[in-house]
Design a binder for these strands. Structure first.
Length: 550
RNA sequence: GGCACCAUAGUCUAGCGGCUAGGACGUUCGCCUCUCACGCGAAAGACCGGAGUUCGAUUCUCCGUGGUGCUACCA
């Protein structure tokens, strides 16, 4: 077979050769050891938490080595294209502070960088040039078989194939053996065709492969005649990956573990073209416990898979990043404990420290991290963040906050600051409910079962008569205690010894006031809250409760 | 069906031939506070199973088992 002739038959319109592009995009001028990393989302929806996960690896690695992190749009599947998704990807990266140095920046901003175009659908001519090169080298052939239309199609076909044999064919025995004349006839007849790799690999043969996360591995050679160019002229991932990461000089490909099985086919394509493959880092996949089963975080079922979820819920960016970092390098939290105020960029991140099993998403942990982040911030900052969040997601509340700025600031300052700040907020959306008593009245709440109602009532009646909002914390407590004791509430320890003899404990008395005033059993320092509310409101609310105590 | 990845408490993990198997979240219980938290202290809770290698395996090898992924003209 005359492969040059074949390449002209297949790609008569391709003007340049591979060398042309190789010299058009020369090596990057970067310091020794600089790593070039990238994120290649496909615009099929939102940005997945897994994208943020690998983007952080890429961003930190590039920053640490004075390299480059760029964003490339992998939009070769036009069937799954969703308008707006590309912008979301870029915007979310920026929002989370994982900003790319170059590449695609959304529909309205020009791309940055000398190695573009960074949108794969704009690069078909380049891909076809490389495809033609492969044909010339006798390493690719046209396939005229009918394609599978859907996932179901494929599964069905696979089932059928398995009925007769125990393996799925890897070589395309039919089309790889067509003669030039047959191919020419098919082309002239206008039959659609895809370009496939003519694999020369032998799966019995193994070779060493080093993955930056998994370490040294032995993998089998590829034997699959993978599709290089689809019948619409656009390549699927494999060729696009090889061409783009060569031309854009990516040094480390960070991608999800689901790609791991295809490295040998990617390496074969690099080799067939005489190109050097990059280093690979296959990351674990974030999963979730669904009943008894562990599974990948799913787009449809799990709102937390979408990075926008955390914004809508009001998690600070820093909380999410610290959580992801903690998943990535598990010694992060030890470092954080030692350096509570340090910027996360000071943490000694390493790709090698990434574990290789798939972690499950844990809200408890995220919330805990977030509480620790927020409790260190001054009230002004917390207020500003809540306000910014509310302006977007709860304008009414934002309005309320702005009109009561001083009150809210005072509220946020209760138990804040110092070595042992209160940790009660992990996301801005919870604040409205958490401090609802500040701005809203409520129906009289239930009181604890163990408290005797008639005495509770007498206690509250007397207390509200005597309550003086000018008392400081000490005096305030002393007053509650005295009045409670007078109404048969007992010292905590004594009460424990003989509960039935008393109306309740001092703690119960306090809680009675707390519940009456706030409607909640846990709140920051009650004395401060009462001062904030003012005597009138406090009196009204306590009276409301009194009415229910008959 | 084939191929691969993974396997330590409910969860995230440390471990890299000899440890009372360490930490964190969560849970429970104390202490502190004459309230809620915070903080402090403690408890419960793990090496998937079986062979081998070894004086000795959580650690190394093999075989099971389980979970996951891939086996698309999706990425």
């Amino acid at each position: 077979m005359d492969y040059n002739k074949l390449s002209e038959l297949l790609y008569p319109n391709v003007k340049h050769d591979m060398q042309y592009y190789l010299s058009k995009y020369p090596n990057r001028n970067l310091p020794d050891g600089a790593e070039v990393t990238r994120l290649g989302p496909s615009p099929t929806g939102y940005l997945h938490i897994g994208h943020l996960y690998s983007a952080m690896i890429s961003r930190i690695t590039a920053t640490k080595t004075n390299g480059v992190f760029y964003l490339r749009l992998e939009d070769t599947d036009q069937k799954r294209f969703i308008p707006g998704a590309a912008d979301i990807a870029y915007n979310m990266l920026c929002y989370y502070g994982v900003t790319p140095d170059e590449g695609y920046r959304g529909e309205n901003l020009p791309q940055i960088g000398e190695y573009g175009d960074y949108v794969q659908s704009h690069r078909t001519e380049i891909y076809q040039t490389f495809a033609k090169e492969l044909v010339k080298k006798g390493r690719a052939f046209p396939c005229f078989c009918e394609k599978s239309e859907s996932k179901d199609d494929i599964l069905e076909r696979r089932e059928k194939e398995l009925e007769n044999s125990d393996t799925i064919t890897e070589h395309d025995e039919h089309c790889r053996n067509l003669t030039y004349e047959q191919i020419e006839a098919n082309i002239k007849a206008g039959k659609p065709w895809a370009l496939k790799l003519l694999s020369t690999g032998n799966p019995e043969k193994q070779h060493e492969f080093v993955d930056l996360i998994k370490g040294k591995r032995v993998i089998r050679e590829n034997a699959r005649d993978v599709v290089l160019v689809k019948s619409n002229g656009i390549p699927p991932y494999a060729l696009a990956h090889v061409v783009d990461d060569t031309l854009m000089h990516t040094t480390i490909v960070v991608r999800g573990e689901e790609w791991y099985p295809s490295v040998s086919s990617h390496i074969e394509i690099f080799n067939a073209l005489g190109l050097k493959p990059p280093k690979y880092a296959h990351t674990p996949v974030i999963s979730k416990l669904d009943g008894e089963n562990k599974r990948k975080l799913s787009k449809r079922k799990d709102p937390e898979a979408d990075v926008r979820y955390y914004i809508e819920t009001g998690y600070p960016i820093q909380s999410v990043k610290e959580y992801v970092l903690n998943l990535l390098n598990s010694d992060f939290e030890q470092w954080r404990n030692k350096n509570p105020l340090a910027d996360i960029s000071e943490f000694d991140f390493s790709i090698k420290k990434i574990g290789s099993n798939n972690p499950m998403f844990d809200f408890d942990k995220l919330n805990n991290i977030s509480k620790n982040v927020i409790c260190r911030w001054p009230a002004e900052r917390v207020f500003a963040e809540i306000n910014t969040w509310a302006e977007k997601y709860d304008p009414k509340y934002a309005n309320l906050l702005q009109n009561n700025r001083e009150t809210m600031l005072k509220m946020l300052n209760i138990d804040r600051g110092g070595d042992r700040p209160r940790k009660d907020i992990y996301a801005w959306s919870m604040v409205k409910e958490l401090y609802s008593y500040l701005f809203e009245d409520f129906n009289a709440p239930q009181i604890a079962d163990n408290i005797k109602k008639p005495e509770a009532k007498e206690f509250l009646v007397e207390y509200i008569k005597k309550y003086d909002e000018k008392l400081d914390k000490q005096a305030w407590f002393e007053q509650i205690k005295q009045i409670a004791l007078a109404h048969n509430f007992a010292d905590n320890k004594e009460y424990k010894l003989n509960p039935s003899a008393y109306a309740g404990s001092i703690a119960d008395a306090c809680n009675l006031v707390r519940v009456a005033v706030t409607g909640k059993t846990t709140t920051p320092d009650l004395c401060s809250i009462m001062q904030l509310l003012g005597k009138q409101k406090v009196a009204n609310r306590i009276n409301n409760l009194i009415k229910t105590l008959q």
